[in-house]
Amino acid sequence: MENNALELKHITKSYHDGEEENTVLKDVSISIGYGEFAAIVGPSGSGKSTLLSIAGALLSPTAGEVKIGRTLLSDKNKKHWDKVRREQIGFVFQSHQLLPYLKVIDQLKLIDWLSSGKARKEQAEHAAKLLEDFGLESRLNYYPDKLSGGEKQRVAIARALMNHPDILLADEPTASLDKERGRQVVEMIRDETKKYKKAALMVTHDERILDLVDSVYRIENGEITRQR
């Protein structure tokens, strides 16, 4: 196994605004190891979401190198980015983004179907085990509208782990939750990261939960520094 699940080397991202060039990220480098839970903090507009999009193969950097597990991304093989996102990355968004017409267990089984074109018994068992890990075994056949906000976010995290990703990317996962439920969700991300030896990178404004992560990076004006 590679030492790092995610490596971003000398990442720069610029946009043209008329005749002006706006540089959002300036020579940013970070690496996240397997079993490591890292957080990125910083003010609005500092480049956090842009960096997360680049780490998730959703956005190309203007310059720099992105490596996810053993896969080096480049513009030359962009046709493979969908496969990388599907098989090597798990996403947790600010809102849970569950499909309203699918039961909880089917939210997870859909990930396997999208990856392989069929439902496999071992992945169905994996889905049930993940939901049990998150205390949702009694909610398998519930639709999202019957779940609390915290339960929905827990389903979303379990779904993100379904494809055995190298890296879990979480964009403000506590934004729609109260303090107690938000902390519980981040604790679950931490625990599952350790249990399954995955890596996790979280963007957050909530500095009260930073004691739960292994490393903290701060972005300001497009530049990144490691705080611990």
Rank of each mutant, 00 (worst) to 15 (best):
L72A: 06
S95A: 04
V92M: 04
S95Q: 10
H80N: 14
K79Q: 13
K152N: 12
R85D: 00
K78V: 13
T71E: 14
R85V: 04
W113A: 06
L140G: 00
G90C: 05
E137K: 14
E132Y: 10
G135F: 01
G117I: 08
H126E: 15
A119T: 13
K76C: 02
S74K: 10
I105T: 00
S138P: 00
S116V: 13
K121T: 15
L114F: 13
L130W: 05
Q107W: 04
I105S: 02
P100Y: 00
H126C: 08
L136M: 04
R70W: 10
N141C: 00
E137F: 06
L110E: 11
F134E: 06
W113M: 11
H80R: 12
I111A: 01
Y142S: 11
L131G: 09
L72C: 06
E132V: 14
G69E: 05
D133L: 08
W81E: 07
K79W: 06
D145H: 14
F93K: 00
V104P: 06
F93D: 02
G117H: 12
E122L: 12
Q94T: 06
L136I: 02
A124W: 04
T71G: 02
L72E: 13
S116C: 06
L72Y: 05
W81F: 07
R120V: 14
Y101S: 08
K146I: 07
Q94W: 03
L114P: 11
N141K: 02
G149E: 01
L140F: 08
R85H: 01
D82I: 03
E87Y: 06
N141M: 02
P100D: 05
G90A: 09
K79L: 07
K109R: 15
D112E: 12
S115G: 12
L147Y: 13
T71V: 13
Q88C: 03
L108W: 01
L131M: 06
R139I: 07
L110H: 04
K109Y: 08
R86P: 09
D112C: 09
L147R: 12
K118G: 00
D106P: 10
Q107R: 05
R120D: 14
A128V: 13
S148T: 12
A119F: 09
G69T: 04
G149S: 09
Y143T: 05
Y143L: 11
Y101N: 09
E137Q: 14
L102F: 04
V84N: 00
L110R: 05
A119N: 11
K118V: 02
F134K: 01
P144G: 07
G117N: 08
R85E: 01
K78N: 12
S115Q: 15
D106K: 12
A119W: 09
G135N: 04
A119K: 14
D75C: 07
S115F: 06
K83Y: 09
D145I: 10
E87G: 05
L131F: 00
K76P: 08
K76A: 10
K78E: 13
D145E: 12
G90L: 06
F91D: 10
L99G: 03
G149P: 09
E151S: 02
Q94E: 04
K121H: 15
L140W: 01
D133S: 08
V104H: 05
D82V: 10
K109M: 13
N77T: 10
K129D: 14
A119R: 14
I89E: 07
T71W: 01
V92H: 03
P100V: 01
L99F: 05
L136R: 02
K146Q: 14
